[in-house]
Write a protein that binds this DNA or RNA. Sequence first.
DNA 1: CTGTTAGCGCTTTCAA
DNA 2: TTGAAAGCGCTAACAG
Lengths: 342, 342
Amino acid sequence: MNIREVARLAKVSTATVSRTINGSDKVTRETRERVQRAIEELKFYPNTWARALGSGRSRLYGLIISDITNPFFPELVKSFEDIAVRHGQEVLVANTNYDPARMEVCVSRMLQRKVDGVAVMTSEMDEHLITELESRDIPLVFLDTGAARKLASNIVVDYAAGLDSAVEHIAALGHTAIAFISGPMNLASACIRREAFIACLRRKGMVTDLLEQANHRVDGGHDAMARLLDRKRRPTAVLASNDMTAIGALGAIHERGLSVPDDISLVGFDDIQISSFTQPALTTVRLSREQIAQMAFRALYSIRQEGSEGAEYSIHPTLVVRGSTGPAVRQRPRATGQRKSA
Amino acid sequence: MNIREVARLAKVSTATVSRTINGSDKVTRETRERVQRAIEELKFYPNTWARALGSGRSRLYGLIISDITNPFFPELVKSFEDIAVRHGQEVLVANTNYDPARMEVCVSRMLQRKVDGVAVMTSEMDEHLITELESRDIPLVFLDTGAARKLASNIVVDYAAGLDSAVEHIAALGHTAIAFISGPMNLASACIRREAFIACLRRKGMVTDLLEQANHRVDGGHDAMARLLDRKRRPTAVLASNDMTAIGALGAIHERGLSVPDDISLVGFDDIQISSFTQPALTTVRLSREQIAQMAFRALYSIRQEGSEGAEYSIHPTLVVRGSTGPAVRQRPRATGQRKSA
DNA sequence: CTGTTAGCGCTTTCAA
DNA sequence: TTGAAAGCGCTAACAG
């Protein structure tokens, strides 16, 4: 069944059916209604492929992420999909699995499906693949990578502000021995967070020797925390580069029979779902995936549909105080009474 | 740029280019190579829609899930996508958000994109929408819903076997007061799990009065566990209908100052990622999403590409023993030494 | 083995 | 406002 059958039933030309489908205003209300009745009667769904072929737009956006099983991404994907569908577009999700080589496959998939734009929400990217996309006039949007160009926008996250608020919070609670467990140093965003932390502490005139590196996963956080606990100078507060790391750290602390936040305060970054369900719930810096998704979609949409140029967008993470942070003064006898601080 | 340009550069007809692209064996090695060189030189990516239009197959499979932010689904999606891409197919993911009304939108999206098959991995489905899909000869595969038909396969999970192994394990540890926190009773799979538990306990001649209902989310598990702990007859072991519920229960137990597994043993269901990272790590019944995804894809693929009929597939969950289960005899002095049982 | 050509279902000028 | 008809890029049947 196709547009011709609808046309026949409605006694109009295929062009008129097409116009009706596309909401053209050059169709009499009467004709439109007749066509619509025919469409419903035949339960006709226009073939999107044919539409794409004819019109040159696929109504499809590509979304490249690292790994959907990384808790950071599902919300992002969901929000992106939501907005896209609301705008009558579809989404093609592709995982790179943190593997630059797979990035190639992803890009080729996007190219074959002739997407109307690609949101690259990962850092495993290859400059030459990006060029590939750009040379085909495909609008792009990045997360914290590169600069805005003619057809490419960039969403920059103000990590520094996020880290600052976390350090402020911790410092206000009287902590001075503050540690940082970073992510892998080959990841740009992990470096930025680490640098922001160091800068912030320096500004406050604090020592910044309590640094450990991990891998942004639970196991890495666990091991890094164990190393911190083995130091002569132990931290009384620990910031982690992301929540997964913090959750690993939490486990390591518990294993030593220590308490959070009585013995050690802990702050994460991202605010993934499970962070509200740990024991205690994690104080963390929220990086709104919904906001990122919205910006990313708008960025692509405005370039592709509204002819705008690429722009720079910025996102400010915000501190979410929950149960894992408390005063540094645990020596006091009434320390246990200060457990709940959220 | 299109197939014609490639043809021109390679000095062959478009048909030959097409054949080369599709790996037809009726092309001389020499010609094929010439064409391939042209393709690379022009960085030509065949337009998938035109291909779909011409051939009648979109090389696109639909995957309908409840909610990508539910930890059960990401792995499923990823595995499905992996297999699909490996077979040169693409995947269109759609979330119903547990809302039968949104199921309609999902189905219509699938229809418009002319997918080659749909994996319906959720239970919010509407019989008439399924009919809609079936009437268009779209291969389907369900998870625990309906029976196999001409163009529809069904993957059935042997919940009973899974629950059995969990109860066996718990019983072997000497527990007799075993509770079950079920999922929402409007969810078919939740009912099956609950019934399987009851049946299993009956078979062992145990009382089955320790039942609570929750919602398959962390908060529900927490509250249900709290209610169990308020009972005169307290359970020494608790099985949860899914891991989220168990994680909520874990929190509730800790809040009362009780220990897992010393005071209460806990078993989950599903084996989602975080379950290995709770404190203690959760003993649970693993329902392999990878297996589900593989079966689902194979089911669709064999119907669509190999002309098979719909079939019934079955999956057996398996027990994963970790730290949250231990002997019921916590009165013994050496109880603490038995903490780690994984 | 290769080329010619008629579609696939829809969009979009261009006329009417 | 509507219709006729020429593509969009590719596939596949048919001819050679």
